[in-house]
C-alpha cells in the first residue's frame, strides 16, 4: 500500500504570538517550529501502523522552503520512508492543496492522510481540497482507520456523535484524536533520518485565492473578580445580572 502523509510545520504550542511589520506578519523571532501535532501524532503514526501491518511505503509531503527541512527530518525520524518537499512558500490552504494534488496525481497513492487542522491557522481545509482536485472520497475528522483489501473502514466525528463509514481506496482522510498514540523518535530513527531521501520538487504555482492582510491580538482581559467559595449564590447572581450568561 502506498501512503502519503501531508506534514506541515507549526509554531511550538508555548510560542508567544506576536506580529511585526504593522501587524501584517507573524513574528518568527525566537519561535521554535514543530511538526503540526495532528499531522505527527495521528496521521503519520497511523500511516506507519498500517504500513507495519499491511506492508507498503509511507511518504511525507510538505509545501515549503528549505527552512522546513528540520521538521521534515523529524517525520522521517519517526519512521516515514521518504519525504517530498514542494519547493515554494506555503501561502494559503488552496495553494498548498493544489500543489500537493498536482504532485500526488500521477503517483498512485492508496491513502492520503492529513491532520485534522494546523494549530496555527486551524483551517481544516487542505484534505477536502486535495480530495476535490483528485475527485476522491474524503473522510474528515476520522478517529479510526482500518484497511481491508481495497476498502477503508473508518470512524469519524459528526455533530453530537460519531459515525462508522466505508470507502473504496484511494481515499483522503483527515486524522483526529483517537487514531493513534504519539511516537517519540529513538536514536536509531534519528540517525536513519539523516540519510533517508528528501526529494525537492518544483512547485506548480497555482493562483492564490486568499491572503492575510493583517493580524490582531485579542483585547486584554479585565482583572478577575474573586468570589467567596462559600457564597455560590453571589456567583449565580453575577452570572445572571453582570455577565448575562444565565
Amino acid at each position: 500500500m502506498k501512503i502519503l502523509v501531508c506534514i506541515s510545520k507549526a509554531p511550538d504550542t508555548t510560542s508567544k504570538i506576536a506580529f511585526v511589520e504593522g501587524n501584517t506578519k507573524f513574528d518568527e523571532s525566537g519561535v521554535q517550529y514543530i511538526v503540526n501535532p495532528y499531522d505527527e501524532w495521528y496521521a503519520l503514526v497511523r500511516g506507519l501502523e498500517l504500513k507495519e501491518s499491511l506492508g507498503g511505503t509511507v511518504t511525507t509531503v510538505t509545501v515549503g522552503t528549505a527552512s522546513d527541512d528540520a521538521t521534515i527530518r523529524k517525520a522521517l525520524a519517526i519512521g516515514a520512508d521518504d519525504a517530498v518537499r514542494i519547493d515554494t512558500e506555503a501561502k494559503d490552504a488552496f495553494q498548498v492543496a493544489a500543489e500537493i494534488a498536482a504532485y500526488a496525481k500521477e503517483q498512485g497513492f492508496d491513502l492520503i492522510l492529513t491532520g485534522k487542522e494546523t494549530i496555527n491557522y486551524n483551517g481544516s481545509q487542505v484534505g477536502g481540497m486535495i480530495a476535490e482536485h483528485l475527485d476522491l472520497p474524503f473522510v474528515s475528522l476520522a478517529t479510526k482507520l482500518d484497511v481491508n483489501g481495497t476498502t477503508a473502514s473508518l470512524e469519524k466525528e459528526i455533530v453530537g456523535g460519531s459515525q462508522e463509514v466505508e470507502a473504496q481506496l484511494p481515499v483522503v482522510v483527515s486524522c483526529s484524536k483517537g487514531m493513534a498514540e504519539q511516537r517519540i523518535p529513538n536514536m536509531r530513527g534519528i540517525m536513519a533520518a539523516r540519510t533517508k531521501p528528501l526529494n525537492v520538487v518544483a512547485a506548480s504555482n497555482p493562483e492564490q485565492l486568499t491572503g492575510f492582510v493583517s493580524y490582531e491580538l485579542p483585547a486584554p482581559k479585565a482583572a478577575v473578580k474573586m468570589i467567596d467559595p462559600e457564597n455560590m449564590d453571589e456567583l449565580v447572581a453575577l452570572l445572571h445580572n453582570e455577565a448575562k450568561v444565565i
Binding site: 490552504a93 481545509q125 487542505v126 477536502g128 481540497m129 482536485h133 474524503f138 474528515s140 475528522l141 485565492l209
Partner: peptide, 18 residues
Amino acid sequence: KAVAPRLSVRLKAGLVAG
C-alpha cells in the same frame, strides 16, 4: 469543514474558514 474546501476547489472560490 468537509464540504466548503471541496466547493472552494470546484468553484475556484476563495474560502474563509472560521
